[in-house]
Design a protein around this nucleic acid. Sequence first.
DNA 1: CGTAGTTGTTGGCACACGGCCAATAGTGCA
DNA 2: TGCACTATTGGCCGTGTGCCAACAACTACG
Lengths: 207, 207
Amino acid sequence: MTTEPRWRRLGPDQRREEIFASAQRLFALRPYGEVSTTDIANEAGVARGLLNHYFGTKRDLYLEVVRAAASVPENVIDHAPGGSLEERIDAAVNWFLDSLSGQDAAWINAAGSSGLGRDPELERILLKAEDDAVDRVLETIDMADVTDHRDELRAFIRAYGQLAKTAGREWLIKKKLSREQVHLLLRQSLLTIVEDVLPEAIARDRG
Amino acid sequence: MTTEPRWRRLGPDQRREEIFASAQRLFALRPYGEVSTTDIANEAGVARGLLNHYFGTKRDLYLEVVRAAASVPENVIDHAPGGSLEERIDAAVNWFLDSLSGQDAAWINAAGSSGLGRDPELERILLKAEDDAVDRVLETIDMADVTDHRDELRAFIRAYGQLAKTAGREWLIKKKLSREQVHLLLRQSLLTIVEDVLPEAIARDRG
DNA sequence: CGTAGTTGTTGGCACACGGCCAATAGTGCA
DNA sequence: TGCACTATTGGCCGTGTGCCAACAACTACG
């Protein structure tokens, strides 16, 4: 009589995946403090100690989940450059809104750092994601190679990114705006920044 | 020989204040999870149990601190209405930037909810603060009494608020922008929203 | 087919932290 | 001076997390 094993032994990657998935599910549901490692372990059908073995600390696991959620979806458009500035901007905005509604819209919730009190590591992760998003935008509107006042441009776009994220929330979650209205807001704002604010900001150099 | 007391007995309000101040200091320094009630108690020179007595739970104390940090400074300008739209917007932006640099700039860090996984109560607090800020802006630019598409207007302004907060950070913390540049960005963006986006958004009603 | 080796996995120990509450001790008042 | 009032303490207890040595599933080799 061959007694069947009490648990299955998996390859490290596979088990890691399982745990990570469970963590994703739970962390998306409730905030960090209200998710216990026991919960995650149970969800994954695994002993609690295994989390530490694969991810180190609970916090480390959390940070990995956040990193995954914060990064903009990779499926960029084919980026057909031509056209006027307005057309390119229009395309960029459309791409953005599509990827918002298409995705499970996970990263729309990945807000700026926690409520208060800097958390350097978390901040670093979110800033990295933000910067990637900025690059994406700059590429899409064919301004990736501006070198003159690069820092200022990026700062403007970063601020714009927050506007975009918030507007997205107003559309998808709070339902106060229609897609067309959000599109309008994003198009006009970006247009103003590129055509109006940037040149002027360059003219009067920064102090 | 009169032995001197081991501790002083204060009025409830005063002691409450002391503890609250200590909590503010520590929560501003490190994130929630890395501040223990013991830390706060030590900082306040008080027994740990007293925190619970005055504030209930650690979380309750935290929420009060956040509420204080998130609310925009009350010292509004005298609000001299007259002038063109551009002048009014200019005044509003100036007021905003002044209150940013003037304050200890605490609330500039009070970002949207935690990194992931909704925290309803925290969210409620931050949304309340955000809405107050929106009201403040609308008053300052004399658009507080628009009734037609109030929800849309407020949504636009809310998104704009995030842009403003981020731009403020780029100026005061990251030093990528000068005050003039931020001013320019905020003025032009708000102008575009009010003069351009809003009318158009109203024309094509929301679906 | 048995057996030793590898390592994914478990279970429990130790410790830190937060909520709670009965006992204590400043403090003003009679 | 003593008494009542209550601000404040100190410790108990449950919970959550990191850690690690033992264990067992699986593999390979004799």
